[in-house]
Design a protein around this nucleic acid. Structure first.
Lengths: 214, 214
DNA sequence: CTTCGATTGCGTACGTCGTACGTTAGCGCA
DNA sequence: TGCGCTAACGTACGACGTACGCAATCGAAG
């Protein structure tokens, strides 16, 4: 028996693989979601744009695969599953999920266009549900809290990313200067406002969300 | 003397106004953020695409103006400012903000591309800060909780909108069927999961966030 | 009332995008 | 050795944002 006919994976000429394409796409996406074009990915592979369409029917499909792949890279301390403190585990879960989003800014932008969960999303949910169950939270309460953490992280990452963009601080400051004078409370917390989306603030929000847990 | 605006094409002086353009843009955007193109807006006005550039230097600028305009339409019960229950007022604030996002799905998508606040964002913050102060929450705590509500709403709206898209439910179900069997907790809450992003769940999350308020 | 620079308003056209569609080239089998 | 199939890819199209520059109009000066 020869390997010439391995079922469908046998490639012909300068053939590509899904993994190669996704690797290239992730590299390209590091320059921002807008930089992630079929042509850019193809160029990075020395291929023509249409070559990618052998493996992904559409750009959306490629982005979905990319998103699911990075989601799959999230890792939770397996030891923590056995730890006695569900509250700490949930805190860890939230922080790791947020860190993942912040590590891949393009993913946050991509998620708006392709918000559907992929296969790798479910084990993450399972992980969270297990912790929640140990905290005595089940059913609708569990789903709500789980969704809440994800939604919060999503919005939070979006804000934090935009805040770190070049010129964001300066245009924020300009707006502040022109608007805040008429708004006493806003002016009073101006310093804190400039740090909106900071880790410190995130910890406070999560602490509130998980206040009754554990 | 002669009517300088000919009946058929009032192409001369000041044929458009910013408000007209924004009105047209909002109408167009009702078909989704992707439908909001300069050409589509121009078509809706019977003008040429480049005509818009007399009033907005770039598409981003038009979108920013549009976003800020809908933000400005949020209204809070002025009577509630004087009500005795900050907790209820915050709850109201969060719900109204979320409702605004859900009423303009395109805005959620647009905010990813243009996440900077406009002038109308600040009075909203002021409103929230006033309530928070009455609840005894100030400084970093206030900014954190305020940011948290906005971020949660943003992510929540994004999820809810995608869930309501055609085919979303079916592809969710398919994914569920192929993945859930190996995940006992996920399978156990399958029914609740299908309603992720529901109002009921939102209430639960907000209740947790505001648990210590008031 | 005429003339003329400045300004307003917009038409043409370019570069880039995703991708439909048709062409080519290598494989398995006769 | 040849043939048909299909994987692989090149060409090309329509839609996008918008740079650029011409034409129509206005205000002021003669």
């Amino acid at each position: 028996m020869t390997d010439t006919t391995s079922p469908r994976t046998r490639r012909r000429r300068n053939s590509l693989t899904e993994v190669e394409i996704l690797d290239a796409a992730e590299t390209v996406a590091a320059d921002g979601f807008a930089a992630l074009t079929m042509r850019a990915v193809a160029d990075a592979l020395g291929a023509s744009p249409m070559a990618l369409y052998r493996y992904f029917a559409t750009k959306d499909e490629l982005v979905d695969a990319l998103l699911d792949r990075v989601l799959g890279r999230i890792e939770f301390d397996d030891g923590s599953d056995g730890s006695g403190d569900p509250r700490a585990d949930l805190d860890d879960f939230a922080h790791r999920h947020l860190a993942l989003l912040l590590a891949h800014p393009w993913a946050v932008a991509a998620l708006v266009a392709h918000p559907l969960p992929g296969p790798n999303a479910f084990p993450i949910g399972e992980h969270a549900l297990v912790i929640l169950e140990r905290a005595g939270i089940t059913g609708d309460d569990a789903v709500a809290l789980f969704s809440g953490i994800l939604a919060l992280n999503y919005g939070w990452a979006s804000f934090a990313i935009s805040r770190d963009e070049p010129d964001a601080a300066s245009s924020m400051a300009r707006l502040f200067a022109s608007t805040a004078p008429g708004l006493p409370r806003t002016a009073a917390v101006a310093a804190e406002m400039q740090r909106y989306g900071s880790d410190d603030h995130y910890d406070r929000v999560i602490a509130r969300l998980l206040h009754t847990v554990g």
